[in-house]
């Protein structure tokens, strides 16, 4: 893929490429028919493990729970050697300090949700403060939500400016922009919001908060991957993708990897290019890895829950 447009000129977002849902469904079903076997399956499962943002985003999160999760992030299943760690842990800003300490030196990143997660219903100065707090606590990555209310009202410039502002407030932290596609509803809007986020400075675009259904359907992820591919062709910049919410089986994770490989190429198949926002996916991946390696399905009791 070649770099074409430097400096970047902003497109007219009202003219973002249209998306045909029927066509998307057809293409997605093709990914689901790919046969992933043997070595390819094992490698895929391990790559998926290494792409997980292990997540806890609840009102009842405690320092204890976060510490446990951070330990698991680095020790997924130590009885089986040779497994990678996850990519990151994802927590609320109030837990960033604790998480940072727990994963220090391991290479596991700390991601913090931000910008009045999950609804985004707060003024911009609150969102800036929210973001700066997380960065100051040591967050490596910021998962911000966009203002869906403004987006749906057609105020694309507002959404764009807000993302750009948070990008600035994030400093060196990697910015993931959550579109909350379940609230945008149509694939045309998923595509347009993706374009807005990337041109405004997103390092990653992310489907969902996990609080709204539907979340990371393959149709939505596919549409966002197309947007990422076009942005790369247009600007030369690589933006990552993070489907979050609803991906809990290894099979679905592999289908997602197939989709990334075929739409964007192998270059995106690392945790710099692709992440899974998930909490229960890790154990299903581990279970499948053990099945491939030993030939036996083990009960879920053999895998630590958090």
């Amino acid at each position: 893929m070649t770099k074409r447009n430097n400096p970047i000129t902003l497109p007219d977002f009202s003219k973002s490429t249209r998306v045909d849902k029927v066509g998307v469904e057809e293409r997605v079903s093709r990914f689901q028919k790919r046969s992933i076997k043997g070595e390819a399956k094992l490698q895929g499962l391990k790559m998926a493990l290494n792409m997980i943002d292990l997540t806890t985003l609840e009102g009842k999160d405690s320092p204890g729970k976060v510490r446990q999760m951070c330990f698991k992030a680095q020790h997924l299943h130590d009885v089986h050697p040779g497994l990678p760690t996850v990519a990151a842990v994802c927590v609320y800003p109030s837990m960033v300090g604790i998480a940072k300490k727990e994963v220090a030196g391991s290479g596991v990143k700390v991601a913090s949700v931000s910008a009045a997660f999950p609804a985004g219903q707060a003024p911009i100065d609150v969102k800036i403060r929210d973001t700066r707090f997380a960065v100051d606590e040591g967050a490596d990555e910021i998962d911000m939500v966009i203002s869906r209310g403004k987006y749906l009202a057609g105020e694309y410039n507002f959404v764009f400016d807000e993302i750009a502002t948070i990008k600035e407030a994030s400093g060196n932290a990697r910015l993931k922009v959550i579109l909350e596609t379940g609230e945008l509803v149509t694939l045309d809007d998923v595509r347009r919001a993706s374009d807005i986020a990337m041109y405004a400075g997103a390092d990653f675009i992310k489907t969902s908060t996990g609080k709204i259904q539907p979340a990371a359907t393959m149709q939505v992820t596919y549409t966002m991957l197309q947007a990422i591919r076009d942005f790369r062709l247009e600007t030369g910049i690589k933006v990552g993708m993070k489907p979050a919410g609803g991906i809990s089986s290894a099979k679905l994770a592999l289908h997602n990897l197939v989709m990334v490989k075929e739409v964007l190429g192998n270059e995106w198949l690392t945790n710099d290019g692709f992440r899974f926002g998930a909490s229960s996916l890790a154990n299903d991946l581990l279970m499948q890895i053990m099945k491939v390696e030993t030939g036996i399905y083990q009960s879920s009791d053999y895998f630590a829950i958090d």
């Binding site: 046969s35 076997k37 390819a40 680095q74 990678p84 990519a87 220090a104 391991s106 192998n266 690392t270």
Partner: peptide
């Protein structure tokens, strides 16, 4: 607690033959 490095070195992912 023991630290483990985030290993992310994988070879190029290709589908195994599925005849």
């Amino acid at each position: 607690m023991a630290k483990k490095k985030n290993t992310s070195e994988f070879p190029k992912w290709n589908y195994a033959p599925a005849p």
